[in-house]
Design a binder for these strands. Sequence first.
RNA 1: GGGGAGAUACCAAAGUGGCCAACUGGGGCAGACUGUAAAUCUGCUGACGUACGUCUUCGUAGGUUCGAAUCCUGCUCUCCCCA
Length: 376
Amino acid sequence: MDFKILYNDKHSNARTGMITTCHGEIPTPIFMPVGTVGSVKGIHQRNLSEDIKARIILGNTYHLYLRPGLDVLEKAGGLHRFIRWERPILTDSGGYQVFSLADRRKLSEEGAKFHSHIDGSKHLFTPENVVDIQRSIGSDIMMALDECTPYPCEYKYADDSLKLTHKWLDRGFEQYKNTEPKYGFSQAFFPIVQGSVYADLRKQSAEKIASKGAEGNAIGGLSVGEPAGMMYEMIETVNEILPKDKPRYLMGVGTPANILEGISRGIDMFDCVMPTRNGRNGMLFTSQGIINIKNEKWRYDFSPVDEIMTSFVDTDYTKAYLRHLFIAGEMLGPQIASIHNLSFYLWLVNESQKHIKEGTFTDWKNSMVKQLASRL
RNA sequence: GGGGAGAUACCAAAGUGGCCAACUGGGGCAGACUGUAAAUCUGCUGACGUACGUCUUCGUAGGUUCGAAUCCUGCUCUCCCCA
């Protein structure tokens, strides 16, 4: 994997660049749609590549390991072939499931023991086997096993957790260096900064992560309930330390405003379930602000979902029709909403790239942030 | 014409003397969702008030009772069976 910065913004830490992988190029800053179990929920791969123009998508180690299982993925020739997606894939390690399935797992030095949410069976994830699993999946970017701490989180817990995440990182990185890809293309391995909302822990973690010399670095454990301002402070703290010439990935973030604020602080990669999950639940992100398409006020509104029309669904359908689909419980509604939201998110990062190049990013960002948060 | 059953909020449907402004579903209205156990979850849905509450409701008109959606009588309407 290779990363080149093309332009640095003069008024902020934003930058635009290009990641090159064996499955193609990824212009940054970028948003990566989440496809946990080998599917970006409700979206055909064809829509994803041709209409939404996604450059890279996510998969999840925990979910893919449980279903369909590694034997299927290996026989298929890896996840790309299995799901027929030829562009890059990044896999999360299962660290987020350590957080979201907290009542079904037990952590120890060795790793994380899970009770499957599907059939209750017991499984052990270690820093090493999570690398092996991601080798079998064949993702272009693999993530280290970490503990995504909850919020709020006691200092002592965050500190202990961080020590564990760092130990796991050392082991995972060793495993990464000592193993080979299975499908003939290279795979990168990103370590993850933790430390909850404590600046000293974040600094300590960022130094540890930077010392590994990985091809890219991630920031985790944010947007788990803390105020946005706190998240931005942590990003600033961490990005002062993380190498500037490597991509920085802010995991699980976020709202359109979060993404723009992240970009201005030097983040290059984002992923979030929000455009798809909220889209399925009737929430649309538009250039004018947030729409709850189920609201009665759209009943007779025959205008496009978004006036800037970021995808074919905006030109083909009206708000009134989309509202009707949701009210009637038609599955086309969530599909259209997901396509729109993802297109909008991709539009947002594309525009960011453009404004960074043109030197107009900060002003544009500031006006957008206000607009994006308003409720229509 | 004779016999039987029934009328409860937007709809369906519980409730058959006080725990009933009335279970539950649906519908309607609104909210939540951030490395996806989510096409999910939550709240409201007689009126007025933030709330304790107050007022008007269970076809309709009366009555019994300290107290009625619930008991009694008249009326109106609906459905079923027999002729």
